[in-house]
Design a protein around this nucleic acid. Sequence first.
DNA 1: CAGGGGTTCGTGAACGTTCACGTGAGCGTT
DNA 2: AACGCTCACGTGAACGTTCACGAACCCCTG
Lengths: 378, 378
Amino acid sequence: MSARVGRSQRKDPSGARAAAPAGPGPGPDKVLSVWTDNQRAEPGAEGPDGARRRATIHDVARLAGVSRQTVSRAVNDKGEIDPATKERVLEAARLLDYRPSRFARGLVQKGAVTAGLVIPDLRNPFFPEVAAGVLEAAEQRGWQVVVWDSRIDEARERQALDVLSHQADAVVGYFKDPDDVLTRHLGGVPLVLLERGPQQTRFAAVGIDAATGVEQGLNHLFRAGHRRIGMLDGVHGPGPRRLAFLEQVRRLGLPVDEDWVAVCPEHSVAGGEAGMERLLAARPEITAVFGFNDLIAVGAMRTARRHGRSVPDDLAVLGFDGLSLGELVEPALTTLHIDKRQLGRLAVEQVARLRAGEEPLRGADAWVVPELVVRSSA
Amino acid sequence: MSARVGRSQRKDPSGARAAAPAGPGPGPDKVLSVWTDNQRAEPGAEGPDGARRRATIHDVARLAGVSRQTVSRAVNDKGEIDPATKERVLEAARLLDYRPSRFARGLVQKGAVTAGLVIPDLRNPFFPEVAAGVLEAAEQRGWQVVVWDSRIDEARERQALDVLSHQADAVVGYFKDPDDVLTRHLGGVPLVLLERGPQQTRFAAVGIDAATGVEQGLNHLFRAGHRRIGMLDGVHGPGPRRLAFLEQVRRLGLPVDEDWVAVCPEHSVAGGEAGMERLLAARPEITAVFGFNDLIAVGAMRTARRHGRSVPDDLAVLGFDGLSLGELVEPALTTLHIDKRQLGRLAVEQVARLRAGEEPLRGADAWVVPELVVRSSA
DNA sequence: CAGGGGTTCGTGAACGTTCACGTGAGCGTT
DNA sequence: AACGCTCACGTGAACGTTCACGAACCCCTG
């Protein structure tokens, strides 16, 4: 039937092949010049004005004088196609600027996985590192990752969720909203929370074992003789790090009350500087300070020095995160190092479990344990 | 058909199914009483045995006793639906863990734009900043961005292109391969190159006006009295920064040959340290050094100090990039600051032009001009 | 000349959703 | 009683691609 039309064209390599599919009919088999494929197509007067409809596989097929399937074979580099035909099809595709629709493709062939990643602040060196871990693990699984920078704005977090719940197969990220709000914006997509303990959420999560880390850090400070230790927190509420700090300080029998903790307005060096100003004003007697993260700790060092206190002699500073930046400042920052890439990899692992219908990792398996790295600042 | 079942169910509230919206008068919403207890804390814990086909809109429609369209209305929060029915449909959707296929959806309603972003190394603070600019501009346009970390591996760059050419509507990123190789892996998707001059590629690009920047920097060094200036380059070939350096040095009438330029094995502090070792060995007489980027410049400072040369007195160091990290090291780094976010935003602007069929920006409009930030190191 | 096997190509039929209609019930107006 | 309107909902028909088939042709072999 219409297969014969294709045949005859193939056997007739004379000119006019790139122009009109319905040949002049030089044979008995001009049975149907109307292709069932493209009935509604109007050859010729395509777009009166610049209505640039994107070319489809049909258009390419018509221009090349073959069927959709042959076009598919050509562009996907499959077998079962004559090299000459393939070249002709490819040429037609180039001419029409054809690009297969990823939607139509994804609809029929499953397997393309897209994960969403929501990061609070790309300018904080901590998060790119986590993202690198996510990206790396995702790449290994053949997934792709669409990234959102929520810029520490909860509204933007929700907005990211709204989009991602439509466009991603799973989401991992940092979110401040409580479970029920997240659920509402999630529309059923699996979610893996970053840095939330199991008791803080019913979603799957990966976290940091702040307690163990802080214990190491405060032991170190204590052994160095410090008895009056303050903290520069990064959040207002009592998060895991502050709770661990308070617990360890009490365990060591050291004095502590609210005054010993100052909250920094933001997770940055400038935030640390500002927080340290307030902490020194409230508790000038401190000999050591524990920072919520390395950025804040570096800020603390700078303020301390500005106040004429040398680090670590007059004031010891302990960070949290283990940014490579800590090696470059002076004095080099003693810190609780976190394997940030591992955190990201773990998150992807959690996503994989969720997708497989398995139970997500809970407890220690979903934790990253900080490691004390002693440098010069404490 | 099941459609009629739906009808009859609607007309017959006493049906055995749990679907029982109140009769004509939609009184107080007494919704399902049978399966309201869906405490499924674990996502994906539904189907014990196999057959894990994802639920479609049909399944939901059948379970709720309505048509596809009504399900669509419910999940998309459209009008023209009875609140009670909507609740019933939503409940059924929840029960089946239904999530609309983004492919089917994208196929029918156009407009979802996905861009690919390929970054060489997320651990270099420069690139997250560029990425933030891309993400920000993309978000404003309602696009999403899938990010790849090529980890400075050209094979991975190509691999990223292979995937992205299938899954993205446009690609922006850093690529080392020449135009023809890129074209081969691109399959027709628009590409915007980061940090390539117009004469270096026929693709659309956004770049850095290295010449103007270096001119400012070397003028500054010259005015400070430096006459023997070396460079720590980051690439082997003569890139824009090295060419600009050589030109400016010659313009100032200073001595220079290959020995005055050392290539760092990698774009990192460690790379800068290593490169500086070699540069000091080859040209111990230098009084100033220009770094390919801030990381390398910081490495140079460290090596210089290790060799007993104080910065800036014995040796001045000039960076390139303007990382915030430069403010934290000691002495603070004098550098040619680049608006990295702007670079990213410009790239998205280029993508938009390409998509609109417009001519991409060329020349100065697609450039970011560095600005000399004088701190302590030079 | 019948038959077999290998190429090369075409034809419905999905895939899961939304869009543009169409329909019937209910209610009020004339 | 006829008409019109609104509400709630259902019905093909796309959207663009790949998959599972099968058909026509070619080159052999017996």
